[in-house]
Design a binder for these strands. Structure first.
Length: 323
DNA sequence: CCCAAAATAT
DNA sequence: CATATTTTGG
């Protein structure tokens, strides 16, 4: 009954890496960048009337779709960061737009593109909440702990509520034993499907930290799986956080050049490496008014292999210290 | 047209 | 900050 929670990753390993889940992700990211780099975006017409963003189907050489009609620079974070030349950083938000179609000033008043919660980001989310415990699992803290660039408190809050609902749903179905496994009990109240794989795609991808269930059960509030805080060494003058992912529906691109980031054709395993970026240089954070905030020294984030191969890489990222 | 996810409002 | 509602994307 309870032995399941011991090896939950054994389970999610099967469903998690379903390549198809993250495949479209990489494509979305590379498309605009490559397009711009190749300069084949057909900038002929000032007003781009065509913009068909297909989800997948990578059959043809893929004629790069023209850049979005408008870019966005809502990023409170410094778009010009890039402290290290090698940091393959792709933020949810990009710099400003260069090709001014209307000549207007999109400096402000621009809506931020829809945030896409990719499994990787969600993994960070769950991990952050897991390490924080229900007590401190508040949007603000979570957001800070996640250290994902372009992620705002609103995003976390919205996702958090959904996640809570997901947890509550699971409680009702996993009462007694079934463990973290998906109950075959579908429907429940005639709601959308059941707890099956078809339900919460994203949530199912991430392991559910046992503690989130039944607050009255067990007295261990914040159960830390493992906190190798000692990993805070100055490895090198450069942090390589190629882990978290923040993808945007419409990846904006600035008129400036983008680094070709080398090549992501077929690395060691044959699967693309996601050029995701973790918040690199955020503001030094204003201040934490809450004294009770236990300063999380740091935590490691294990990155599951995006592809289905057995080689699972473990990426250790640590707070830059500013957050 | 329906459903899910995210954003926004309360 | 939490919840409810509206909007948007699939």
């Amino acid at each position: 009954m309870r032995e399941d929670d011991s090896n939950w990753f054994s389970r999610w390993e099967e469903e998690l890496p379903s390549l198809e889940e993250l495949m479209p992700l990489s494509q979305t990211l590379i498309t605009p960048d490559l397009a711009l780099a190749f300069d084949i975006t057909n900038p002929t017409n000032t007003t781009n009337t065509n913009n068909h963003n297909s989800s997948l189907h990578q059959n043809q050489p893929l004629p790069p779709p023209p850049p979005p009609p408008a870019a966005v620079s809502p990023t409170p974070t410094n778009p010009l960061a890039s402290p290290q030349p090698n940091s393959g950083d792709f933020a949810t938000d990009s710099g400003e737009l260069g090709s001014g179609a209307g000549g207007d000033e999109p400096a402000r008043t621009l809506k931020r593109p829809r945030l896409v919660w990719t499994p990787q980001v969600h993994k960070r989310f769950v991990d952050a909440v897991a390490h924080l415990g229900i007590k401190n699992a508040v949007p603000k803290t979570i957001m800070q702990l996640m250290n994902v660039d372009g992620l705002t408190r609103e995003n976390v809050a919205s996702h958090l509520q959904k996640y809570r609902l997901y947890l509550k749903r699971m409680q009702g179905l996993s009462s007694g034993g079934g463990g973290a496994g998906n109950g075959t009990v579908g429907g429940g109240g005639g709601l959308t499907g059941g707890t099956d794989a078809a339900t919460d795609h994203l949530f199912a991808s991430s392991p559910v930290p046992a503690h989130f269930l039944h607050p009255g059960r067990s007295n261990s509030d914040h159960f830390l799986p493992f906190v190798p805080v000692a990993a805070l060494q100055h490895h090198h003058h450069q942090q390589q956080m190629v882990a978290a992912a923040a993808a945007v529906a419409h990846p904006q691109l600035q008129g400036q050049y983008h680094r070709p980031m080398g090549h992501f054709g077929s690395p060691t395993n044959g699967q693309f490496e996601h050029p995701f970026l973790a918040r690199q240089t955020q503001q030094p954070v204003h201040r934490m008014g809450a004294p009770v905030h236990n300063a999380v020294p740091g935590y490691v984030e294990d990155l599951e292999s995006a592809n289905g191969n057995e080689g699972r890489k473990v990426l250790t990222l640590f707070p830059t210290g500013d957050d």
